[in-house]
Simulated scan of single mutants.
Amino acid sequence: MQIRTATAADLDDLARIYAAARRFMAENGNPTQWGDGRPTAAEIAETVEAGACLVGVDDAGTPHFAFSLYTEADPTYQQIYNGAWLNDEPYLTIHRVASDGCLHGVFAAIVAFARERAAAADVANVRVDTHEDNKPMQHLIAKAGFAYCGVIHLADGDPRLAYQLIL
């Protein structure tokens, strides 16, 4: 398994991966997080164009998972409720994690990749958030060593459970 920056040539695979993730979430008690077709094709293309979308590929180069990794502060993380961030130091943010289910250890690979990027940028924190109904993701986040910090609200007002990992 290898992780690389997504390109426009990956858009069809990204659509397939996010569709599979939406199905998985709906089948596992989380039908509303991306139930409205999010991220949309336009949102995915915008993330790819910005260079923030990454894909995990198998030995043949076929993409099987995707995520976004941001180095700038997330504006939705400025306010946190029912808790507090572990610190106010710079951080990387993992967003839009999705898998087609063909590879195992996906989130562990994403966190390892984020750790490498953070070390290269001299950043000692990684943050992530997820929907309260996304129990599989909450399990993976805890397993990766993230601490639950509280609740943030997305730009549209939807609440998300927020986590931080100090490296």
Rank of each mutant, 00 (worst) to 15 (best):
113 F>E: 13
4 R>P: 01
14 L>C: 05
107 F>I: 05
54 L>G: 07
3 I>M: 07
33 Q>W: 05
119 A>T: 11
13 D>T: 05
166 I>C: 15
129 D>T: 12
84 A>K: 06
47 T>V: 05
150 G>Q: 06
128 V>M: 13
163 Y>V: 11
82 N>L: 15
2 Q>A: 12
12 D>G: 01
9 A>R: 06
132 E>K: 04
145 G>Q: 08
104 H>T: 15
95 H>R: 14
122 D>H: 15
1 M>R: 02
115 R>Y: 08
135 K>P: 04
48 V>P: 00
158 D>Q: 14
102 C>P: 03
57 V>S: 02
111 V>N: 08
167 L>W: 01
111 V>G: 02
153 H>Y: 09
97 V>W: 04
10 D>F: 03
8 A>G: 06
16 R>Y: 03
162 A>K: 03
25 M>D: 01
46 E>S: 14
7 T>R: 12
166 I>H: 09
167 L>A: 04
1 M>Q: 07
148 Y>L: 14
87 N>W: 03
136 P>L: 04
137 M>S: 06
16 R>Q: 06
148 Y>T: 08
128 V>T: 13
36 D>I: 01
153 H>T: 05
158 D>C: 13
3 I>Q: 04
50 A>K: 10
8 A>Q: 12
24 F>P: 04
42 A>H: 02
162 A>W: 01
95 H>G: 00
92 L>P: 02
4 R>G: 10
51 G>H: 05
27 E>R: 00
167 L>N: 07
60 A>N: 10
101 G>R: 06
34 W>I: 12
147 A>T: 05
148 Y>N: 13
107 F>S: 09
89 E>I: 00
7 T>N: 00
37 G>T: 06
52 A>R: 11
79 Q>L: 14
103 L>S: 01
5 T>W: 02
144 A>N: 06
65 F>S: 04
150 G>L: 11
79 Q>I: 11
140 L>D: 11
63 P>L: 00
80 I>A: 08
80 I>E: 01
94 I>Q: 08
12 D>Q: 12
86 L>N: 09
8 A>M: 12
130 T>I: 03
69 L>T: 02
78 Q>R: 15
4 R>T: 08
111 V>Q: 00
17 I>H: 01
2 Q>R: 13
52 A>Y: 13
108 A>K: 14
45 A>I: 09
142 A>K: 14
159 P>D: 09
9 A>M: 08
7 T>I: 03
13 D>R: 01
71 T>S: 08
107 F>E: 02
35 G>H: 02
25 M>T: 09
65 F>V: 00
69 L>N: 07
5 T>Y: 06
151 V>Q: 11
89 E>L: 15
44 I>Q: 12
163 Y>R: 10
158 D>P: 00
164 Q>A: 07
167 L>P: 02
67 F>Q: 10
72 E>T: 13
50 A>Q: 13
74 D>M: 15
36 D>C: 10
68 S>V: 03
166 I>D: 12
35 G>P: 10
134 N>V: 01
45 A>H: 03
127 R>T: 04
16 R>V: 09
29 G>S: 09
26 A>I: 03
6 A>C: 07
148 Y>F: 14
82 N>C: 15
82 N>K: 14
31 P>K: 11
26 A>R: 09
143 K>E: 15
38 R>K: 15
111 V>K: 09
